[in-house]
Nucleic acid binder design. Structure first.
Lengths: 196, 196
DNA sequence: GTAGGCTTCCAACAAATGATGGATTCTCGT
DNA sequence: ACGAGAATCCATCATTTGTTGGAAGCCTAC
């Protein structure tokens, strides 16, 4: 039950934002009483924090998995696999992308260190991609390039319902176009960087 | 007064989202009574719609201005100027970026055609950049590439407060890094596209 | 079976919120 | 000066929302 509530909260918070979700909405979605919700997770803010903590954990695991997966290949191969795997996961979990986006923009939601793991992993990706040698001293420009890839993936997955009709393609083709676009645009830039 | 309310609403809605803003918040921000708010703009949803319509209009004008500005130059020059001017404007109006971002992701806020002008202008940019010949038949991949530029600019401006500490630079340097990154990553990709 | 703990529901409350009617003030043309 | 219309404020209402106390149900160890 605790899990079912968390999952429902995850989807609702992603869709409507923190203030856009009421405790009654949540209870109705799960099919339980409001009190049961409070019994398991405490107040609304605590539940939201739990959702974000859970998400943060998943992201960290996924990034570690990718890091292991691409270890040792060429730069182009690393980029291609990373983009493929990350996009697949994000397309399968668009709520994750939406939650991340709103946590980026919103005014100090939850703890200020909720984004720290992201920061660390962006730095790790920069090192893994050969843009920096030491993960404690990643140049701002290298971080910015990794962030551009990351944000683009988040955007296209979180905003699929919005962007899909703009491109005039069907669902499968959209996902293919997004991956190709990320690779097409980003791989040459990074390759150029590593050559310089 | 109508204008002052609209501007306050613009900033508050951008920061806290539609549900995160109360009519009392708005009234207090402007320093007026709640009723005055209703007198000028009707219900909260109407005010939100007005904010979005106003924003849509501004974006359209800005894009037209850029289109005129870069008319006739080389592809690289067009891209560079477009990125410079658009980033300058977005950095000066981060609420605009935040509003756009939330309108992309939110579940059917306001009228469904609120995004149509964006769609048209993305297509226009694609044509202006030489990625398509006819603005009614822009290939999905060309649109996707333009969208990537667009979204990246929106992200870095809307999330400045979040990304700035991640890059460990000051405000001015951040804006410079963002512009450089967008140009560095995107110009080669588009140039490669036009060569193919 | 039954005592005790874990889970769920019912009912309710205080505060916040969207919205409105009517009184009051302000503006300005005559 | 004054009167009409626009603009603003005060007081208030009905709902919604977050949250809680306590009763009822369910499960399990003895």
């Amino acid at each position: 039950m605790k899990g079912r509530i968390l999952e429902a909260a995850r989807h609702l918070f992603a869709e409507y934002g923190f203030s856009g979700v009421t405790t009654r909405m949540l209870a109705r979605e799960v099919g339980i009483d409001i009190s049961t919700l409070y019994y398991h997770w405490g107040e609304k803010q605590d539940l939201y924090d739990a959702v974000m903590a859970d998400l943060s954990c998943e992201i960290r695991a996924k990034l570690r998995e990718i890091e292991r997966m691409v270890h040792g290949g060429s730069l182009a191969h690393r980029l291609e696999v990373a983009i493929d795997v990350m996009c697949d996961w994000l397309f399968a979990h668009p709520e994750a992308a939406k939650l991340m986006l709103s946590s980026y923009m919103g005014k100090s939601r939850s703890a200020p260190d909720a984004h720290v793991p992201i920061k660390e992993h962006i730095a790790n990706i920069a090192v893994a991609m050969g843009l920096a040698l030491d993960r404690t001293r990643v140049p701002a420009r290298a971080n910015a390039r990794v962030l551009t890839v990351w944000n683009s993936a988040i955007n296209f997955t979180a905003g699929e319902d919005f962007f899909l009709p703009m491109l005039g393609v069907d669902r499968d083709e959209y996902r293919s176009v997004v991956k190709d676009t990320l690779k097409f645009i980003l791989i040459p830039a990074f390759a150029q960087s590593s050559a310089a």
